[in-house]
């Protein structure tokens, strides 16, 4: 479950000092840091990023051959690497340049020299996105799962969408750098439509609907986790999804009353999604 950190700096001394600081923090507070990878300039860093599993990049700006800004631009414009969080560590004090880098997708900026506390705060911020951000990502993952797997269209929320009475609650757990549960609450009617689309069945029953919702939860979870941590390979264990059927119309109201839930309109049917983070 360890996270690989790539340090990009033309000074081997600085790379060593950064490793030392992070190592010291990791001994007292488990940040989940695993292997350190090192590059002396942007070119070397791009090669490593394309060949190895990297979860976080700490990059200097002023380097020979290829500087940090060019490297970041290339990483953020490459589909396979753009989700890797980059933190700039530099003595650069020009706020305009820092703002430009943040606009380019840089996660944060640490001024050299940084304290262990400053680094700790950044790592926590990276791995523990705010709940609002995480719910937003989860909603995106569900939308993507519905559109690509169940061929269902996401529509704007409106007053005419059907609020389900008999509901199915799908739940799937994940354990790793973050642990928690994803819950999807959908009406039985919609779940049957999803079953028709996902499994290609014409006469679906409740069991088919349950299976379709489980499948949807599984795919949503698979899409969501890489959005939280750049690369999920070997980082998360995912539980087998379960589905509970409920005839109580109150369930919907209770579910959406929670702040960390979000409602989507799937072809006129309301679906709610919730993220429960355990650590």
């Amino acid at each position: 479950m360890a996270l690989n950190v790539l340090i990009v700096d033309d000074s081997s001394l600085t790379r060593k000092a950064i490793k030392r600081i992070i190592g010291m923090i990791n001994e007292t507070t488990d940040l989940g840091i695993g292997q350190f990878l090192e590059a002396g300039n942007g070119c070397e860093a791009l090669k490593i990023v394309n060949e190895s599993h990297v979860d976080l990049i700490l990059a200097d700006l002023n380097m020979p051959e290829m500087g940090g800004a060019e490297m970041i631009h290339r990483i953020k414009n490459n589909e396979s690497t753009k989700s890797i969080p980059v933190v700039v560590i530099s003595t650069e004090s020009k706020t305009v340049r820092i703002k430009e880098l943040l606009a380019e997708g840089v996660k944060n900026y640490l001024h050299k020299p940084f304290t262990p506390e400053e680094f700790k705060a950044i790592v926590h911020e990276l791995w523990n996105k705010t709940t609002a951000e995480a719910v937003d990502l989860l909603t995106r993952a569900l939308s993507q799962a519905l559109e690509t797997t169940a061929y269902s269209m996401i529509m704007p929320i409106d007053d005419d969408m059907v609020i389900p009475e008999k509901t199915m609650l799908a739940e799937i757990g994940f354990m790793g750098p973050k642990s928690g549960t994803i819950q999807i609450l959908a009406g039985v009617q919609l779940s049957k439509v999803l079953a028709e689309n996902i499994a290609g069945l014409s006469n679906v029953d409740d069991k088919n609907a349950c299976d379709a919702l489980k499948e949807l939860a599984n795919i949503t979870c698979g899409l969501f986790l890489p959005m939280v941590v750049s690369s999920t390979a070997d980082l998360f264990d995912i539980t087998i999804p379960t589905v509970k059927v409920c005839d109580n119309s109150e369930q919907w109201n209770e579910f959406i009353a929670v702040q960390d839930s979000c409602v989507l309109n799937i072809e006129g049917h309301a679906v709610a999604i919730k993220l429960v983070i355990e650590n």
Partner: peptide, 20 residues
Amino acid sequence: RRILHKIKGESGMVGIDEMS
């Protein structure tokens, strides 16, 4: 400029603030 910048950065990173 590059050399001074590098000495400043390295000094700061190892905590030799006066040199920085």
